[in-house]
Design a protein around this nucleic acid. Sequence first.
DNA 1: CTGTTAGCGCTTTCAA
DNA 2: TTGAAAGCGCTAACAG
Lengths: 355, 355
Amino acid sequence: MKKKIGKKRQITLSDIAATVGVAPMTVSRVLNQNGYVSDETRDKVLSVAKEMNYRRNGLARNLKRQRTETIGLVLGDISNPYSTELARAVRQAATANDYNLFICISEHSAEEDIAAFESLTSHSVDGLIVATRANDAGDEYLKSIVENNVPVVVIGRDFYHENIDYISADNLAGGFEATQHLVDLGHRRIGFIGAAFDQETKLKRLQGYFNALEKHGIEIDERLVTGRREVRSGVPGYSTEEIGYEGMKRLLSLPKRPTAVFARNDFTAIGAMTAIKEASLRIPQDVAIIGFDDIPLASHMSPSLSTVRQPMRLQGQIAAELLLKRIESESFPEREERILNCELIIRESTVSRKS
Amino acid sequence: MKKKIGKKRQITLSDIAATVGVAPMTVSRVLNQNGYVSDETRDKVLSVAKEMNYRRNGLARNLKRQRTETIGLVLGDISNPYSTELARAVRQAATANDYNLFICISEHSAEEDIAAFESLTSHSVDGLIVATRANDAGDEYLKSIVENNVPVVVIGRDFYHENIDYISADNLAGGFEATQHLVDLGHRRIGFIGAAFDQETKLKRLQGYFNALEKHGIEIDERLVTGRREVRSGVPGYSTEEIGYEGMKRLLSLPKRPTAVFARNDFTAIGAMTAIKEASLRIPQDVAIIGFDDIPLASHMSPSLSTVRQPMRLQGQIAAELLLKRIESESFPEREERILNCELIIRESTVSRKS
DNA sequence: CTGTTAGCGCTTTCAA
DNA sequence: TTGAAAGCGCTAACAG
């Protein structure tokens, strides 16, 4: 049974004003709790508003006020606990400062990145936190946003702009430490899984791997570096279990297979572990493996996964703070750059329980 | 070095119009690609718009158009892969229909639930998908939203309203099957972890557990049902690893401990597994355990976790479809209710590898 | 304490 | 093919 046909017009301030017999402005004052209104009027307005089930129109309000008290967060790869921790921290900081948070997901491409920026900015969010991977078209768009005076902060996105704050884990040092840990254990043939060849130079974790090898005088063997070969233009390079699995299989099929592997992130590492187990090799005795991120899965794996922990909550919190500072500043604050330390977490996948 | 002091006014349609020497309406036509505009005018407008780095004001546009082509999704417990799968599916369906998606997180309380509803509706989203747990204040608010003709669909939220579509996994049957699986294995003392006593009657999974016991003539022992005791009013009852850990410890300390446990969700189950291992008991020989959801962790645990898989992507997809149908319908569609089947996934935590 | 005026930036409608 | 007028619903600023 259809209840009613056609959607009814929404109730407005003027409707209430007319019913109560006051000016819309008075109703506005009551509802926003600012300005003086007599108790009598206030009560009447409130009761009528409630009766009519009034709901204010934020579009009109925000259009007039020129701010929304809302910030936007653009997230890629939302399945990674990395992202959700970040989101929680950002939300917490936002809420504490009376800002709402809208999250947009941009999983696959530069187009989605841009669609997310577009949809958030066109709703006039007061500021934007961007945690997707860099890509040319998206960077271009971000630039135009900033030049429209919308405050922006990026997290782990390799993009420089003088009016954008930059926050990141120290991926370079993290990659270095992970690799060095393997070297310290005596490994000389160390593989890397999860390179993205379209942006190789930008992948700090891979660079850290190169640096560590170089420091210890180990020659770089290109065959030990695997990743997504095909370059889909403008596609951010997230790494998944599948990529780890495929990559490891390729490494294991080499004439001289690596004795240890550094995977770009924990999901990749977990995929690689599956491949190692399938080949009936032991972890870490035959192949040692280390990941990156320290997602909850890492400590629950068997063997548990060594990894590099990055401070996600902290990154989110700092991002929100810097953004709010930008939003509430009258002028343009100095650009800030925060590179946060990572922590090497040694577990069973690199060091045998019994050794 | 501060670049500029004060934020500049945003560029408007009129600015472009003035520069080009046409009416704002003409610029609007060009930018929205509707109506006739001469090629010459169009080119000039476009080039000036680009030059001035014009960005349209969505608030004004949406205020006038009375729609935003945006839908909102309210998520609790975003750390649960359950939520992220849902979000991805919703986003996919929304994008495919040219709608944007804004996600809000409501982690802890009815207040946050309401804040999320408030912030999304006040931005005039065209519709709302709500996937947080039911709570009185939130339900009340939802009702007022619907009665303002905003289309709403709930997922797994136990709330009935004649104009709200309802989608859920069949938690009752899932809970029943999980418990019955344990009974079939010969267990008679079966515990439940993760009850929320303020809403016990609403927790379908627990009800399914009761039903299965009853069917098999097993008497219900209240001491075997653990959960959060303190009733924080209006707090949705999510279950975490800690709750599972604590609950299991309590169960293990009973004079006659259970030989099997059904945990309300996989996180709870994993926490419980930790407690079992700490007590030097074997899974499943000493205590068998089954969870719910089939998060990625479940299959990677050691022993791997038996569980009940619920179709998250499907729930998200259907929710989005029903919502869009409501949004695009002229009248008020019949309420739809979709209860989706779950699937029992048997792994090592209930059936020993070697048996 | 309350009301009036004006206008946020855009698009719908009608007219030219 | 283009323009003018009006107004979406709200609030800042000022006036009473």
